[in-house]
Write a protein that binds this DNA or RNA. Structure first.
Lengths: 143, 143
DNA sequence: GTCAGGCTTCAAGTGCACTTGAAGTCAAGC
DNA sequence: GCTTGACTTCAAGTGCACTTGAAGCCTGAC
């Protein structure tokens, strides 16, 4: 391994805390070799993998979904441009849907609150029925 | 109080669980009177207040921020259309900013991953430096 | 050799927005 | 009168994505 990286170097290069990197590794999102003394050594390619994780999180994917995506990468060789592009192919749709929802909400600011109809009975935007249901406990964002 | 509502009735009308309503009350987002036996009785206006909370959450406000917003409502009278409209005045800006960020991310799907530059060193979209920092622990969504 | 700083593991804590459970009281219909 | 279901409080649990702390080993510069 000519240019393997320590966890600290990966943290510095990626902006992701060492604790987060260890967490990602425990979660199976990234992998490392170990030195004789047990210290982690990451291949160069891990940087891109971490970048992908950060990007995917911004798009709104959970670590669970990201793990699934990353599992699609070829394991027998270092993934190249086309491999990454394939993964992110579906994201545009996801982003556009999110944008569409926000635009609907924006329209609601005038139509719904502005007109005085802000009532859960009638307002399609507040949409009580289908809002949270069946997502389990925990904080909920956007939808 | 001719038409005061029980917590169950409010839950049914708003689609918000009774446990959540009690939680909102403990957090000071809504208020109730009590019967002699200690049961909650909500004024009719609480429905609109709950609707506002649900809507504000969709926009991305935390309960803390929503509490602050709600505190701006007149306390000596039932708030009317204009009062609610005033609260949501700043939201359009917030939504537009969010949309703009999503559009930037969408562009990055082609420019950044597509072109093969997905590297935290160079890619402005992954943007490691200013991503999470100083927000404390806990899950992070969107930015 | 020694000492700071980086590495290791593992358990527990954090913040948000609730939910769930236990243990009990209250209200309405039969 | 009795049961059913809705209500009460309070403490603890939940899911996510980590962070923090304790206790200790390793590495490199002086």
């Amino acid at each position: 391994m000519d240019t393997a990286l320590t966890i600290g170097e990966v943290a510095k290069r990626s902006g992701v805390a060492t604790s987060a990197l260890r967490f990602y590794e425990a979660e199976g999102l990234i992998h490392s070799e170990r030195t004789d003394s047990g210290h982690r050594r990451y291949p160069r390619a891990v940087i891109r993998r971490v970048a992908f994780i950060v990007f995917a999180q911004k798009i709104g994917l959970s670590l669970d979904e990201i793990r699934t995506e990353l599992a699609k990468l070829p394991s027998h060789r270092v993934p190249e441009r086309a491999d990454w592009a394939k993964l992110s192919a579906g994201w545009t749709k996801r982003i556009r849907a999110r944008i569409a929802e926000l635009e609907k909400l924006e329209a609601g600011l005038t139509e719904c609150i502005g007109c005085g109809c802000l009532s859960l009975d009638r307002c399609k935007l507040a949409n009580p029925g289908d809002r949270i249901a069946a997502r389990g406990p925990g904080p909920r964002f956007w939808m």
